[in-house]
Amino acid sequence: MKIRFAVIDDAAFLRELVKNIVTSAGGVCVGEAANGDEAVTLVESTLPELVFLDMVMPLRNGIETAKVLKELHPEIKIIGCSTIDQEAYVQKAYEAGFDAYVTKPFSKEQILEAISKVLPQQGESTHGRT
């Protein structure tokens, strides 16, 4: 799986966990951010194919961040990772542009399954990179 991804979460240990899971499967982490404002800057400078996005963060929450990212880059895939599992809130996430949603705590299998859901060609970069 040669996917370029970014991890946006205010908890450093969760960023590290997601990074380890996806890089061990062959993904390439292009960066991390701890809040929504940093996320927009990071995505603009690195253009990842996939973003793992927390819902509750300082400065700009996951829903607000997803709306901005999808407006700037409609092709980007967003996987939400959050402790929030209320159906109405998750529905708002999908409406904002999330492509998949994984509830914390999550397993390696749940993360990899979410990736194959949003990027079924996993291993083929949508940016023409190999």
Score class of each variant (00 low, 15 high):
Gln110Leu: 10
Leu42Phe: 06
Arg60Ala: 14
Phe106Trp: 13
Ser82Phe: 04
Ile79Ala: 01
Lys104Ala: 04
Ala114Asn: 11
Glu64Lys: 14
Ala88Glu: 15
Ile79Trp: 01
Glu49Thr: 07
Thr46Asp: 11
Tyr94Leu: 05
Leu72Glu: 09
Phe52Ala: 02
Val118Gly: 08
Val51Tyr: 03
His73Gln: 11
Glu44Ile: 13
Ala66Gly: 06
Thr103Gln: 14
Lys108Phe: 09
Val43Arg: 05
Leu119Met: 12
Ile78Lys: 04
Leu50Asn: 01
Phe98Gln: 11
Thr46Lys: 13
Val90Tyr: 10
Ile78Met: 06
Gly62Ala: 02
Leu119His: 10
Glu95Asn: 15
Glu71His: 11
Phe98Trp: 05
Phe106Leu: 04
Gly80Asn: 02
Leu53Lys: 00
Phe106Gly: 07
Ser116Asp: 14
Glu95Asp: 15
Pro58Leu: 03
Glu75Tyr: 00
Val51Leu: 03
Phe98Lys: 07
Phe52Cys: 04
Gln110Ile: 06
Lys70Ile: 13
Gly97Ser: 06
Leu42His: 07
Glu87Ile: 12
Tyr89Ala: 10
Val90Glu: 10
Ala93Ser: 12
Glu109Lys: 10
Lys108Arg: 14
Leu53Val: 03
Arg60Met: 15
Cys81Trp: 02
Pro120Arg: 05
Phe52Asn: 03
Thr46Ile: 09
Leu59Met: 09
Ile78Asn: 07
Lys108Gly: 00
Ile115Val: 15
Lys77Met: 06
Lys117Tyr: 10
Pro120Met: 02
Met57Ile: 04
Ala100Gln: 06
Lys77Gln: 14
Met57Pro: 03
Glu64Thr: 06
Thr41Lys: 15
Ala96Met: 08
Lys104Asn: 06
Ala39Tyr: 02
Pro105His: 14
Ala100Val: 10
Leu119Thr: 06
Leu53Tyr: 02
Tyr101Asp: 11
Met55Gly: 04
Leu69Phe: 04
Gly62Gln: 14
Thr103Arg: 13
Gln86Cys: 05
Lys70Trp: 14
Val43Leu: 08
Glu49Pro: 02
Pro58Gly: 05
Lys92Met: 15
Glu71Trp: 04
Leu112Met: 13
Ile111Pro: 05
Leu53Met: 09
Ser107Ile: 13
Ala93Tyr: 01
Lys70Pro: 15
Lys117Phe: 10
Leu119Pro: 03
Glu109Pro: 00
Val40Glu: 02
Ile76Tyr: 09
Ala93Met: 12
Lys104Asp: 12
Ser116Cys: 04
Met57Asp: 12
Ile84Thr: 05
Leu119Glu: 04
Ala100Trp: 00
Gln91Gly: 04
His73Glu: 11
Leu119Cys: 06
Lys117Ala: 08
Thr46Tyr: 05
Val68Leu: 08
Lys104Arg: 13
Pro74Gln: 08
His73Lys: 09
Cys81Tyr: 09
Val102Met: 11
Lys67Trp: 02
Val51Gly: 00
Ser107Met: 11
Asn61Val: 05
Tyr94Pro: 03
Lys104Tyr: 13
Glu64Gly: 08
Val43Lys: 02
Ser45Glu: 14
Val43Asn: 01
Val56Arg: 01
Asp85Ala: 10
Asp99Thr: 13
Val90Arg: 09
Glu113His: 07
Leu59Arg: 15
Thr46Trp: 09
Glu109Asn: 08
Asn61Asp: 15
Lys108His: 10
Glu49Ile: 03
Ala114Lys: 05
Asp54Met: 02
His73Tyr: 15
